[in-house]
Design a protein around this nucleic acid. Structure first.
Lengths: 202, 202
DNA sequence: GTCTATATTTGGATAGAC
DNA sequence: GTCTATCCAAATATAGAC
């Protein structure tokens, strides 16, 4: 194998994936074809099979890439000792991440791609992202799993409604602070400060 | 035209639509074909075009039907003078409606069907449903549009997370009461009772 | 109103030359 | 590794007989 052969492979795979994201944004997550991908990168369709064994494998790689970006976005949220500030920043970052790329949101969080199941390999970044969220929440004293679940429902709901019903506007985006504050109020009421919560009702 | 000709047409259309819902639940919203529909109702594919001009027209009819069911579900929520009880019931009814038919949820609220745009005719029931929600909220003193938007984000988020991440369980379903209570707390804090709210921040 | 037959297009994927 | 050529299957939709 020539020097840099693996790098060339990786670069080609990357070029293909970037073309796929662009095509997906233009034609929908399931609205682009192997021939279109090939045309976008300047080869013929069969050549793609040198780099990906199937179209499913391409979706799988996109899923991994999207989740890695999500994990990075979670890690990039500035950490604050103030719970309200921290959650406002987290909510804003999450909604921004989702709205920035609706197709990515659909692939990562809505799972509406018919028949698609990510491989364990591609699911790993998603686990890392969730762990990062868990750690950030623990940092401001939120440790109950059901609280985290309620949070993810709240912020994915904001993003989903924004994208589905006001894709060009900010009708739900501008509710992120209010949503975070509402959530904080629940915590303050349930937890009575910052003590470790017990088994009381959510 | 023979007596009952229109009834026969309507009955045939209805039979086709019921087959479509069943196929969609089995194979996904975009995972069934005209031939499969035809086989399910006992005719050949071309015969379907007597009742629907295209597959898009079928989706359009499904969209209208789903929204009519949603409107009816909203109207069926028992009315309570107690705000908290009312919202708990509304949240539970909404999530139940969504989880009962994931494909319907996807068609009505997620809008991920590539290229699908409902006709004005089919959109009408959706407007009626939203108006019913607005009226129910007004009944317990909630009149601000942004409050209604936050509510829809909250409950669609619960349904979406439930379907995407725990389709066989109840991990988010069991958070509906807590979500409703959290929302009520926001109202009680923002509105200071039941007086007509002004322009204060959400 | 339903059928057979088929037009037309398109999809993912493979064979084998170079 | 890339290509041409093609397989094979399937899709929506239409034409025209009955």
């Amino acid at each position: 194998m020539a020097l840099g052969g693996e790098d060339r492979q990786a670069a080609a795979r990357d070029k293909i994936l970037r073309a796929c994201w662009e095509l997906a944004r233009e034609h929908g997550l399931s609205g682009f074809t192997m021939r279109q991908i090939a045309a976008a990168v300047g080869v013929r369709a069969p050549s793609l099979y040198t780099y990906f064994t199937s179209k499913h494998a391409i979706y799988d790689a996109m899923f991994a890439e999207g989740n890695a970006a999500f994990r990075d976005a979670v890690l990039a949220v500035p950490s604050s000792a103030n719970r309200r500030e921290q959650l406002r920043a987290a909510a804003a970052a999450f909604v921004r991440f989702c709205v920035a790329d609706p197709v990515r949101f659909q692939l990562l969080f809505q799972r509406t791609l018919p028949g698609f199941q990510p491989s364990p390999r591609s699911y790993a970044p998603a686990v890392e992202a969730l762990e990062a969220m868990r750690a950030a929440f623990a940092h401001v004293g939120i440790t109950r799993p059901d609280h985290l679940d309620l949070w993810t429902a709240l912020v994915t709901g904001l993003a989903s409604q924004q994208l589905a019903n006001d894709p060009a506007g900010d009708r739900w985006i501008r509710l992120t602070d209010a949503a975070a504050d509402m959530f904080v109020a629940l915590l303050d009421q349930a937890g009575a400060g910052r003590t470790e919560p017990g088994a009381e009702d959510l």
